[in-house]
């Protein structure tokens, strides 16, 4: 059993939890993820590691209340226990030796992006970030990013903070102003990462993305998380979750991600949870 040591509600749909998980905290690195199961009848869901404390043997996760399991998870509080919590899984992010990097986060994607940019900043890279969300309330971690980012830009659909529009509008503006970046790292909804790559690919700016497809075991056993990268099929759980965004087949990845949408709706309705 894995104890929830601390819980913070970041906004109406995003929560942060600190979990006691000695075997994960011992070796995990930025970019890796965990899989958890709440109880005996629970499904296994992957969540990215946002932070960790090797001494306290804890791992911090951030999740968006989206489907059945995350709704159930949101009802748990500090002092409660999760039945299973395994990791670290996947490969740590390969953080290159860059002079200047731009991070682009959408919604809860800011959480996994945070440790990557922090690590880069620590090693002397100049870091900027664009954080996007539907509205101000859903934009998270701005303050935390500003501790080490030179510039923090915002984009919201309603303009309640920063630019009114998409993160790609801000990206285009920056590039038009002549800003130069050695790499872009983008984490967020698949459709957003696809849109970012549509901007960076013609300019040949190396672009890292982090995928979060359907998976069961997270160790390469089920193959449910397969994704086409270039001409190859990769397993996001063991070959990723980070990939060269310029090579990822986003359309296929989005279709695969939606395969279980109906079942998700069905269980949410049955269990009286509100999925809208």
């Amino acid at each position: 059993m894995y104890k929830i040591v601390e819980k913070k509600i970041l906004n109406s749909v995003v929560q942060q939890m600190v979990i006691e998980a000695p075997f994960v905290a011992r070796k995990c690195e930025p970019g890796q993820f965990i899989i958890l199961r709440i109880d005996e009848s629970g499904e296994r869901i992957p969540l990215t590691i946002m932070d960790y404390d090797r001494v306290a043997k804890t791992v911090t996760i951030v999740f968006q209340v989206l489907g059945f399991t995350t709704q159930l998870l949101a009802t748990k509080n500090a002092g409660d226990y999760l039945l299973d919590f395994v990791g670290p899984l996947g490969r740590p992010t390969h953080l290159g030796n860059h002079k200047r990097v731009l991070g682009i986060a959408g919604g809860v994607g800011a959480a996994p992006l945070y440790p990557q940019l922090k690590e880069l900043a620590k090693s002397g890279t100049e870091v900027d970030v664009i954080i996007g969300g539907r509205e101000k309330e859903l934009v998270i971690l701005g303050e935390e990013f500003s501790e080490f980012c030179n510039n923090v830009y915002y984009a919201t659909n309603d303009g309640s903070i920063g630019h009114k529009g998409f993160v790609t509008d801000v990206l285009n503006q920056l590039l038009e102003q002549g800003e130069e970046y050695d790499e872009v790292i983008t984490i967020g909804p698949m459709i957003m990462m696809k849109a970012v790559v549509a901007v960076t690919k013609p300019l040949n700016i190396p672009t890292g993305v982090s995928l979060n497809p359907v998976m069961i075991d997270g160790t390469g056993m089920c193959g449910g998380c397969r994704v086409t990268v270039g001409d190859e099929t990769k397993f996001a759980c063991v070959d990723g979750p980070d990939f060269d965004g310029l090579l990822v087949d986003f359309d296929e990845a989005m279709l695969r991600q939606n395969y279980y949408k109906e079942q998700e709706k069905h269980i949410c309705q049955l269990e009286g949870a509100n999925n809208d």
Partner: peptide
Amino acid sequence: YSSNEFLTRVNLMKAYDFPNNHTP
């Protein structure tokens, strides 16, 4: 599906008893 994914969903995750078990 790989047979691994299909059988793991059904055997280990008990998808035959969805939605009582939460894996479909």
